[in-house]
Write a protein that binds this DNA or RNA. Structure first.
Lengths: 191, 191
DNA sequence: AAAATTAATGAACAATTATTCAATCATCCA
DNA sequence: TGGATGATTGAATAATTGTTCATTAATTTT
């Protein structure tokens, strides 16, 4: 054995890539710039990633997984339905907010043909806990009995839209505005 | 005067560009392919557009304007509030649906740094009629009195989300599902 | 401490692709 | 009809940028 790979470099590269994609988009992403931003030589990036395509797909998965973990922290599906729903709604909002940049990347990527189908599959899993919860709500008669996808649209749609508005500087987000939106959404779906 | 420019070529070029962007994303868009797809020589594209960047920005505006026009057809703000709201909600849904591809392009572009700020400004105008209507609704006491951005998030967010789900093959969209979503949304915002 | 091994470097190279432009073609006007 | 004008062409060129690899540096083992 000799010198070891320094796997912390992978995260450095991820951070640099994320930063550059957000600044200049996929089309403007250059491997040389990624390396420079991460204080590495161009060739080093190729030690840790097969090629540019691989780098972008890995980054997507990395961010998606990180978001999922954050988002599920402290959620216990065994608790009272209304409480879990509230917790999960706010958790989703807050995590998406606190990682606006990552979320923007994920959205941009989701719409792009870089996305490999297996990656897309994994990415759907993030909403699974919400999905399950909604089914439970319908069964328990706590939610209106419509297709779960419809309920889901009503739940995460406004969050995404509000964050987009925030991103455009059109609205402020604080405890009050979050609560107001929550009230509107719940009034809609609760039976 | 001699031979005239054939401005119908512009639309040919737009259609080709749209098709290719949807297939391969911004990063994969090649001027030579755009030209070929439009049955033109590469150089011809440069007669009608300054460069690649110009082409993409023009395309964005073209699609945005087309969508706006379609979407506002048959809306008369002088009619009864509830009726206008219903018409406008369904019109927005249907136009977004019937032009899923264009909408996907617009979303992808919106998140990308290609977007010039003046273009972004113009693009905000598309929601102006909904915006105005919501303000009227609040004044007339027909809607809950919260920030209009919050109401807007609740109105268009679920539509975008549902269409995304449809795009992923997760849900069917028909008169019934549309109506169900409409009921949920309205139950939330109406006073 | 020196040899062995592998990471890291970054200039050079190979592809790829945007853009140009000399030559050609189509249309208009006298 | 013929010359003038400007549109169109697409191969050639200019840029850009992904990837490689000979060389150097760092770490481990003997």
């Amino acid at each position: 054995m000799a010198r070891h790979r320094d796997y912390t470099k992978i995260e450095q590269i991820f951070e640099s890539t994320l930063k550059l994609v957000l600044e200049k988009g996929f089309a403007g992403l250059k491997m040389a710039e990624v390396a420079k931003e991460a204080n590495l030589a161009t060739g080093t990036v190729y030690i840790y990633f097969k090629d540019k395509d691989d780098l972008i797909n890995q980054l997507y998965l990395f961010l998606k997984r990180r978001k999922t973990i954050l988002f599920l922290q402290g959620i216990d599906q065994k608790e009272d339905f209304d409480l879990v729903l509230k917790k999960i709604w706010f958790a989703y909002f807050e995590v998406t907010m606190q990682h606006v940049n990552e979320s923007a990347f994920l959205e941009q990527y989701y719409r792009s043909p870089f996305l490999k189908s297996n990656v897309k599959e994994e990415s759907k899993q993030i909403l699974k806990p919400i999905y399950d919860l909604l089914e439970r709500g319908v069964k328990e008669g706590k939610l209106h009995s419509v297709n779960v996808e419809i309920l889901l649209s009503q739940i995460v749609g406004p969050i995404h839209e509000m964050i987009r508005a925030y991103h455009d500087g059109a609205v402020e987000i604080n405890a009050e505005t979050m609560n107001q939106l929550y009230q509107l959404v719940m009034r809609g779906i609760k039976a």
